[in-house]
């Protein structure tokens, strides 16, 4: 087995007394795509910034590409590609000028050829004289990706790269990510999209700065121990919202989500859930079916649970 590309332990960062990242440990193997998930403000961006040397952790230690994240921040920066959440290249510069600038900052040999190759590879050759500000969201993401891999990093950190990008552009973007991973680049990508999480080799879920679960999608789903059912309306007058209201707050019900004419119900304690549902299952208006929990179910469940924990710890 090769050494992990990211290996950090107990990473902690506080901003003015507020702990944003709390004793986070993470290991990512080379060539893998690690999905980084969690609610807004859970510390994903801060963790990524600590990994690429932008922020110094208050506590914790570890290595990134075999380099110490505290001592070797400068060396790490040279080998890491980082794509920020917000488009962070120059909108008043052309696609080509942006790439050329990046190439020169990294002091890349044969900058001109490299920029041309990147333009070609990402299908930006026709648009190279266009100003970056005039590009659509999807093209901007392409440019940002092209720029962040120009120096051939061994690790790519992507902070919500596809937020606000249309599905087709998203799919193309992920094809490129897989292509890069196939070439041996390790990728850590934060996202809110479940379909994207399912495209990762491995996912990690953090909330309130703490790592809650980590593993493959199947492992994470299994570890949640969630039981779910779908109740579909049989009769036109059957109200899913009304059913949800009836179940709200009852023992064993952790998850309630209407999907059109159906209601998705779930709970962490299968036996308790079964017991509660037994009463309502007599209602002939709904057809009940047990199903597999989705990744989204698992995350929403985790989010609820971690909030309870967090509030419990706070008091």
């Amino acid at each position: 087995m090769t050494a992990p590309v990211i290996a950090v332990r107990g990473l902690t960062k506080r901003f003015g007394g507020r702990t944003v990242v709390d004793r986070l440990s993470l290991a990512v193997e080379p060539g893998r795509i690690m999905g980084f998930l969690g609610p807004n403000g859970s510390g994903k961006t801060t963790t990524i910034r600590m990994l690429c040397g932008l922020l110094t952790p208050d506590e914790g230690e570890g290595t990134c590409l075999g380099l110490d994240i505290r001592r070797d921040a400068a060396a790490i920066k040279r080998q890491v590609g980082y794509m920020t959440q917000k488009f962070s290249y120059y909108e008043d510069m052309s696609v080509e000028e942006n790439l050329a600038f990046v190439a020169r900052v990294y002091g890349l040999p044969g900058a001109r050829a490299r920029v041309a190759a990147a333009l070609e590879r990402l299908g930006l050759a026709d648009r190279r004289r266009q100003l970056a500000g005039e590009l659509s969201g999807g093209w901007k993401q392409r440019l940002a990706l092209a720029a962040s891999v120009l120096h051939e990093p061994r690790l790519l950190l992507l902070d919500e790269p596809t937020a606000g990008v249309d599905p087709k552009a998203r799919r193309e973007f992920w094809e490129q990510i897989h292509q890069l991973a196939d070439e041996g680049i390790t990728v850590l990508v934060s996202t809110h999209y479940m379909d994207e999480a399912e495209r990762c080799h491995q996912i990690a879920y953090i909330a309130y700065g703490q790592l809650l679960v980590e593993g493959t999608v199947a492992e994470v789903v299994a570890s949640a121990g969630l039981a779910t059912y779908t109740a579909s309306a049989r009769a036109p007058q059957a109200s899913v919202v009304e059913l949800a209201r009836r179940l709200q707050g009852r023992p064993g019900i952790d998850l309630l989500a209407p999907f059109g004419a159906a209601l998705h119900v779930g709970g962490g304690d299968a036996a308790l859930l079964e017991q509660t549902l037994a009463a309502v299952r007599a209602d002939p208006d709904f057809a009940w079916q047990r199903d597999e929990p989705s990744l989204e179910d698992v995350f929403i469940h985790l989010m609820g649970r971690s909030r309870d924990n967090f509030q419990g710890a706070g008091t």
Partner: peptide, 8 residues
């Protein structure tokens, strides 16, 4: 932010 992750 981008400038700062670059080796500048």
């Amino acid at each position: 932010e981008n400038l700062l992750v670059m080796p500048l």
